[in-house]
Amino acid sequence: MNETQLYLNDVHKSFDGFKAIDGLSLAIARGELRAVVGPNGAGKTTMLDIVTGKTRPDSGRVVWGADTDLTRLDEADCARLGIGRKFQKPTVFETLSVEDNVMLALAGDRGIVAGLRHRRTARQSARIGEVLDIVGLGAERGRLAGALSHGQKQWLEIGMLLAQEPQLLLVDEPAAGMTDHETMRTAELLRTVAGAHSVLVIEHDMDFVRALDCKVTVLNRGSVLAEGSLDHVSANPEVIEVYLGR
Protein backbone atom coordinates (compact mmCIF):
# COMPACT_ATOMS: atom_id res chain seq x y z
CA MET A 1 0.00 0.00 0.00
CA ASN A 2 2.86 2.34 0.68
CA GLU A 3 4.67 1.49 -2.50
CA THR A 4 4.96 4.58 -4.70
CA GLN A 5 3.04 4.52 -7.96
CA LEU A 6 3.97 7.92 -9.31
CA TYR A 7 6.70 10.23 -8.18
CA LEU A 8 7.44 13.74 -9.41
CA ASN A 9 10.58 15.41 -8.21
CA ASP A 10 11.43 19.11 -8.72
CA VAL A 11 9.72 19.33 -12.11
CA HIS A 12 9.95 22.55 -14.07
CA LYS A 13 8.16 23.57 -17.23
CA SER A 14 7.79 27.01 -18.68
CA PHE A 15 6.03 28.28 -21.78
CA ASP A 16 7.81 31.29 -23.22
CA GLY A 17 8.84 32.52 -19.81
CA PHE A 18 5.59 31.65 -18.07
CA LYS A 19 6.45 29.11 -15.36
CA ALA A 20 3.52 26.73 -15.54
CA ILE A 21 5.25 24.18 -13.33
CA ASP A 22 7.92 25.48 -10.99
CA GLY A 23 9.62 22.94 -8.77
CA LEU A 24 6.71 20.57 -8.37
CA SER A 25 7.25 17.45 -6.25
CA LEU A 26 4.51 14.95 -5.61
CA ALA A 27 4.18 11.27 -4.74
CA ILE A 28 1.12 9.09 -5.21
CA ALA A 29 1.11 5.72 -3.46
CA ARG A 30 -0.26 2.58 -5.07
CA GLY A 31 -4.00 2.44 -4.51
CA GLU A 32 -4.16 5.97 -3.13
CA LEU A 33 -6.98 8.44 -3.83
CA ARG A 34 -5.69 11.99 -4.03
CA ALA A 35 -7.41 15.28 -4.77
CA VAL A 36 -5.49 18.18 -6.26
CA VAL A 37 -6.94 21.66 -5.94
CA GLY A 38 -5.65 25.06 -6.85
CA PRO A 39 -6.66 28.32 -8.51
CA ASN A 40 -6.70 28.77 -12.26
CA GLY A 41 -3.22 28.73 -13.72
CA ALA A 42 -1.80 26.78 -10.79
CA GLY A 43 -0.46 24.20 -13.23
CA LYS A 44 -2.92 21.37 -12.60
CA THR A 45 -3.61 20.51 -16.21
CA THR A 46 0.02 20.97 -17.20
CA MET A 47 0.93 18.51 -14.46
CA LEU A 48 -1.40 15.94 -16.05
CA ASP A 49 0.09 16.69 -19.48
CA ILE A 50 3.53 15.93 -18.11
CA VAL A 51 2.49 12.71 -16.42
CA THR A 52 0.73 11.45 -19.55
CA GLY A 53 3.63 12.17 -21.88
CA LYS A 54 1.90 14.97 -23.71
CA THR A 55 4.28 17.65 -22.53
CA ARG A 56 7.95 17.16 -21.85
CA PRO A 57 9.22 18.91 -18.69
CA ASP A 58 12.23 21.22 -18.91
CA SER A 59 13.84 19.54 -15.92
CA GLY A 60 13.03 17.25 -13.05
CA ARG A 61 12.16 13.59 -12.71
CA VAL A 62 8.86 11.86 -13.32
CA VAL A 63 9.04 8.24 -12.24
CA TRP A 64 6.47 5.50 -12.70
CA GLY A 65 6.53 2.55 -10.31
CA ALA A 66 10.02 1.51 -9.38
CA ASP A 67 12.18 3.12 -12.04
CA THR A 68 10.36 3.92 -15.30
CA ASP A 69 11.19 7.40 -16.57
CA LEU A 70 7.99 8.92 -17.93
CA THR A 71 9.63 11.99 -19.41
CA ARG A 72 10.91 9.98 -22.35
CA LEU A 73 7.56 8.45 -23.27
CA ASP A 74 4.67 9.73 -25.37
CA GLU A 75 0.92 9.51 -24.70
CA ALA A 76 0.46 6.03 -26.14
CA ASP A 77 3.43 4.67 -24.17
CA CYS A 78 2.09 6.13 -20.94
CA ALA A 79 -1.38 4.76 -21.63
CA ARG A 80 0.09 1.34 -22.29
CA LEU A 81 1.97 1.50 -19.00
CA GLY A 82 -1.36 1.90 -17.28
CA ILE A 83 -2.08 5.60 -16.99
CA GLY A 84 -5.62 6.55 -17.88
CA ARG A 85 -6.82 10.12 -18.28
CA LYS A 86 -10.15 11.86 -18.40
CA PHE A 87 -10.13 15.29 -19.95
CA GLN A 88 -11.60 18.39 -18.42
CA LYS A 89 -13.93 18.71 -21.39
CA PRO A 90 -15.61 15.36 -21.94
CA THR A 91 -14.01 13.76 -24.98
CA VAL A 92 -15.64 10.72 -26.47
CA PHE A 93 -15.90 9.41 -30.03
CA GLU A 94 -19.08 11.19 -31.02
CA THR A 95 -19.78 9.24 -34.20
CA LEU A 96 -19.32 5.83 -32.60
CA SER A 97 -21.92 4.06 -30.51
CA VAL A 98 -21.61 4.06 -26.73
CA GLU A 99 -20.59 0.43 -26.65
CA ASP A 100 -17.98 0.92 -29.38
CA ASN A 101 -16.52 3.74 -27.33
CA VAL A 102 -16.08 1.40 -24.41
CA MET A 103 -14.87 -1.39 -26.69
CA LEU A 104 -12.03 0.78 -27.99
CA ALA A 105 -11.05 1.49 -24.40
CA LEU A 106 -11.06 -2.14 -23.27
CA ALA A 107 -7.66 -3.41 -22.23
CA GLY A 108 -6.01 -5.43 -24.98
CA ASP A 109 -3.62 -5.38 -27.92
CA ARG A 110 -3.47 -1.91 -29.47
CA GLY A 111 -1.62 -3.00 -32.61
CA ILE A 112 -2.73 -2.64 -36.21
CA VAL A 113 -2.88 -6.34 -37.00
CA ALA A 114 -4.90 -6.99 -33.87
CA GLY A 115 -7.20 -4.18 -34.92
CA LEU A 116 -7.80 -5.72 -38.33
CA ARG A 117 -8.35 -9.27 -36.99
CA HIS A 118 -10.32 -8.28 -33.96
CA ARG A 119 -13.52 -10.21 -33.22
CA ARG A 120 -15.50 -9.19 -30.18
CA THR A 121 -15.72 -12.05 -27.73
CA ALA A 122 -18.62 -12.80 -25.46
CA ARG A 123 -16.39 -11.93 -22.53
CA GLN A 124 -15.69 -8.51 -23.95
CA SER A 125 -19.39 -7.91 -24.57
CA ALA A 126 -20.08 -8.86 -21.01
CA ARG A 127 -17.35 -6.58 -19.75
CA ILE A 128 -18.75 -3.70 -21.79
CA GLY A 129 -22.15 -4.29 -20.26
CA GLU A 130 -20.59 -4.38 -16.82
CA VAL A 131 -18.81 -1.07 -17.30
CA LEU A 132 -21.89 0.60 -18.78
CA ASP A 133 -23.94 -0.57 -15.85
CA ILE A 134 -21.42 0.92 -13.41
CA VAL A 135 -21.69 4.32 -15.08
CA GLY A 136 -25.43 4.03 -15.55
CA LEU A 137 -25.43 3.96 -19.33
CA GLY A 138 -26.65 0.39 -19.76
CA ALA A 139 -29.74 1.60 -21.58
CA GLU A 140 -27.78 3.82 -23.96
CA ARG A 141 -25.56 1.04 -25.26
CA GLY A 142 -26.56 1.34 -28.92
CA ARG A 143 -26.85 5.13 -29.14
CA LEU A 144 -24.32 7.38 -30.80
CA ALA A 145 -22.09 8.94 -28.20
CA GLY A 146 -22.60 12.34 -29.83
CA ALA A 147 -26.29 12.14 -28.94
CA LEU A 148 -25.62 11.88 -25.20
CA SER A 149 -26.10 14.77 -22.79
CA HIS A 150 -23.07 16.53 -21.36
CA GLY A 151 -23.33 14.67 -18.06
CA GLN A 152 -23.74 11.34 -19.84
CA LYS A 153 -20.62 12.01 -21.86
CA GLN A 154 -18.78 12.60 -18.59
CA TRP A 155 -19.99 9.23 -17.39
CA LEU A 156 -19.11 7.54 -20.65
CA GLU A 157 -15.61 8.92 -20.45
CA ILE A 158 -15.28 7.65 -16.90
CA GLY A 159 -16.58 4.29 -18.12
CA MET A 160 -13.94 4.23 -20.84
CA LEU A 161 -11.35 4.97 -18.19
CA LEU A 162 -12.56 2.01 -16.15
CA ALA A 163 -12.61 -0.26 -19.21
CA GLN A 164 -8.99 0.64 -19.85
CA GLU A 165 -8.14 -0.89 -16.44
CA PRO A 166 -5.29 1.49 -15.75
CA GLN A 167 -3.18 1.41 -12.61
CA LEU A 168 -3.48 5.17 -12.25
CA LEU A 169 -6.56 7.22 -13.14
CA LEU A 170 -6.06 10.91 -13.76
CA VAL A 171 -9.43 12.60 -13.56
CA ASP A 172 -9.69 16.26 -14.57
CA GLU A 173 -12.78 18.00 -13.11
CA PRO A 174 -15.21 15.13 -13.43
CA ALA A 175 -18.05 16.93 -11.65
CA ALA A 176 -18.29 19.78 -14.12
CA GLY A 177 -21.74 19.81 -15.68
CA MET A 178 -23.16 17.18 -13.32
CA THR A 179 -26.11 17.48 -10.98
CA ASP A 180 -25.43 17.35 -7.24
CA HIS A 181 -26.72 13.83 -7.13
CA GLU A 182 -24.44 12.76 -9.98
CA THR A 183 -21.51 14.51 -8.35
CA MET A 184 -21.97 12.49 -5.20
CA ARG A 185 -22.26 9.29 -7.21
CA THR A 186 -19.03 10.13 -9.02
CA ALA A 187 -17.25 10.69 -5.72
CA GLU A 188 -18.55 7.38 -4.47
CA LEU A 189 -17.44 5.62 -7.64
CA LEU A 190 -13.95 7.06 -7.42
CA ARG A 191 -13.70 5.97 -3.80
CA THR A 192 -14.65 2.43 -4.81
CA VAL A 193 -12.13 2.37 -7.61
CA ALA A 194 -9.30 3.54 -5.38
CA GLY A 195 -7.53 0.76 -3.56
CA ALA A 196 -7.38 -1.44 -6.63
CA HIS A 197 -6.16 1.57 -8.65
CA SER A 198 -4.44 4.82 -7.78
CA VAL A 199 -6.66 7.82 -8.50
CA LEU A 200 -5.68 11.46 -8.86
CA VAL A 201 -8.60 13.88 -9.09
CA ILE A 202 -8.41 17.53 -10.03
CA GLU A 203 -11.42 19.45 -8.87
CA HIS A 204 -12.72 22.91 -8.07
CA ASP A 205 -15.89 21.81 -6.34
CA MET A 206 -15.16 21.72 -2.57
CA ASP A 207 -18.22 19.61 -1.76
CA PHE A 208 -16.96 17.05 -4.17
CA VAL A 209 -13.49 17.09 -2.65
CA ARG A 210 -15.02 16.70 0.79
CA ALA A 211 -17.05 13.76 -0.46
CA LEU A 212 -13.87 12.12 -1.74
CA ASP A 213 -12.60 12.15 1.83
CA CYS A 214 -8.92 11.83 0.95
CA LYS A 215 -5.57 13.55 1.16
CA VAL A 216 -5.61 16.93 -0.59
CA THR A 217 -2.75 18.67 -2.37
CA VAL A 218 -3.00 22.41 -2.97
CA LEU A 219 -1.10 23.68 -6.01
CA ASN A 220 -0.22 27.31 -6.54
CA ARG A 221 2.02 28.82 -9.18
CA GLY A 222 3.28 25.47 -10.30
CA SER A 223 4.32 24.01 -6.98
CA VAL A 224 2.82 22.41 -3.90
CA LEU A 225 1.54 24.92 -1.36
CA ALA A 226 0.09 22.55 1.18
CA GLU A 227 -0.78 18.91 1.59
CA GLY A 228 -2.94 16.98 4.08
CA SER A 229 -6.57 16.41 4.92
CA LEU A 230 -9.09 18.90 3.61
CA ASP A 231 -9.60 20.32 7.09
CA HIS A 232 -5.87 20.59 7.58
CA VAL A 233 -5.20 22.49 4.36
CA SER A 234 -8.33 24.61 4.81
CA ALA A 235 -6.85 25.86 8.04
CA ASN A 236 -3.58 26.87 6.37
CA PRO A 237 -3.56 30.70 6.17
CA GLU A 238 -1.54 30.70 2.94
CA VAL A 239 -4.08 28.44 1.29
CA ILE A 240 -6.90 30.66 2.49
CA GLU A 241 -5.02 33.59 1.09
CA VAL A 242 -4.50 32.25 -2.44
CA TYR A 243 -7.46 30.06 -2.92
CA LEU A 244 -10.15 29.46 -0.40
CA GLY A 245 -10.24 33.00 0.83
CA ARG A 246 -11.45 34.44 -2.43
Binding site: F15, D16, F18, A20, T45, T46, D49, T55
Partner: peptide, 8 residues
Protein backbone atom coordinates in the same frame (compact mmCIF):
# COMPACT_ATOMS: atom_id res chain seq x y z
CA UNK B 1 2.65 31.68 -32.29
CA UNK B 2 3.67 31.90 -28.69
CA UNK B 3 1.83 30.91 -25.60
CA UNK B 4 0.48 27.96 -23.70
CA UNK B 5 -2.76 27.83 -25.63
CA UNK B 6 -0.88 26.74 -28.71
CA UNK B 7 1.16 24.13 -26.93
CA UNK B 8 -1.96 22.48 -25.56
Amino acid sequence: QRGRAVEA
